[in-house]
Amino acid sequence: MKKIDRRKFLKGSLAGGVVAAATGTTKKAHSAYSFEGYPDSMGVLVDLTKCVGCRTCEAACNKEQGLPAPDKPFDDMSVYDEHRHGGLKRRTSEKAYTVVNRYDIPEKGEPVYRKFQCNHCNEPACLTSCFVNAYTKTKEGAVIYDPKVCVGCRTCMIACPFYVPAYSYSSPIDPVIKKCIMCYDTRLKFGKPPACVEACPREVMTFGKREDLIKIGNQKIRTTPDRYVNHIYGEHEVGGTAWMYLSSVPFDQVGFDTKLGTQPIISYVKDFLAIVPMVLCIWPALFTGFHLLAHRKNARQQDNQTVKSKKEEGHE
């Protein structure tokens, strides 16, 4: 057994070594730079263990953001049994910037509810992918969006690792991205918590400075270790998010993608971005050089001929 394992290991490391040598890049190259977020930026800590799925947050969001009427009343719990394309649970849409889903965990006696919305990343993928700079990460921590410059390419929707931005496809004249802006315009800017946070009867969400929330989260885990899994989702995911979560069950069981890694999305794009200036600087010289090389033979022949003809002229 051990022999095979070791051989496998050796083989693997050899192959890895060859590849690493051939390409000269390692994963560490990514971590050279990262933005930890503005120092006093705010955030929200969502304690899933407290949510009872009353959907008051959804109603509060709808009211605060002036969204159109929902398809079903906000006190209608049958939405938890809805499934959309691919058997997936509800998601954010142009009519709902936040959504609560129910997860039935067999080992647990009661269901777990999970609220989600834009997580307001420290280094937002949507922001870095936008070619008209429509997104802004404010110093308060919100990721806001300017619909007036949006061209509608929808790259931000491709880039968002949480599948958050929605698009008003139904509008032919003015389709724009629709997503949670942490109530920036009406509340956060004035030091007030987002509407959903304030409306939640169970205070599932704690609003405060992001760094304080991490302390609170850790204290909760420490003082009641059997209530929580030992992880604050969003503390490090994709470079850290302003919205973070505590859960009593492993996060992948309640709809979180636990394979996103800790690098912000832009770090995957940097390999390409790094070659841009290189190509811009080196290519002109390189290819003009090729041109000269390719034509040197011709040029020399011509030179020789002219020299020859001159000599002949001289002889005559």
């Binding site: 992918s129 936008c130 070619f131 429509a134 410059v149 061209v151 698009y167």
Partner: peptide, 26 residues
């Protein structure tokens, strides 16, 4: 495919997001 095709020139002259890959493509 663009939602607002009449804004195609925005990345060129109106609101520039030069760090984006699509900016380079455009």
């Amino acid at each position: 495919d663009l939602g607002q095709p009449w804004r195609l020139i925005y990345p060129m002259f109106v609101s520039l997001g030069p760090a984006a890959v699509l900016f380079l493509v455009a």
